[in-house]
Amino acid sequence: MVRKEIKILNKYGLHTRPATALVTLVSKFKSDVFLEYNGVKVNAKSILGLLVLAVEPGANLIVEANGVDEQEAVDNLDRLAQQKFNLE
């Protein structure tokens, strides 16, 4: 299992478009990927789960991945978050 803290830099937080980019990315990996925010843990492949987390701008999230490509999944997600999900 790999865990890492990532920061959401997007102006409106993890709203529809960054969440879409996030789900699209992690769905490419075989590992189970979870996000934890304010004590709530959701499946990172579930867009509905991510949206109801309502992650605010500047928030820190814990990414947790379990599976054959766990390290790759976490690294890629971290990079995408740093690039503001290729938006803005």
Partner: peptide, 15 residues
């Protein structure tokens, strides 16, 4: 992109 999000949501495994 908004519709892309709907497309993900409509087949959301958790849901």
């Amino acid at each position: 992109k908004i519709i892309e999000a709907q497309l993900l949501a409509v087949q959301d495994e958790e849901m």
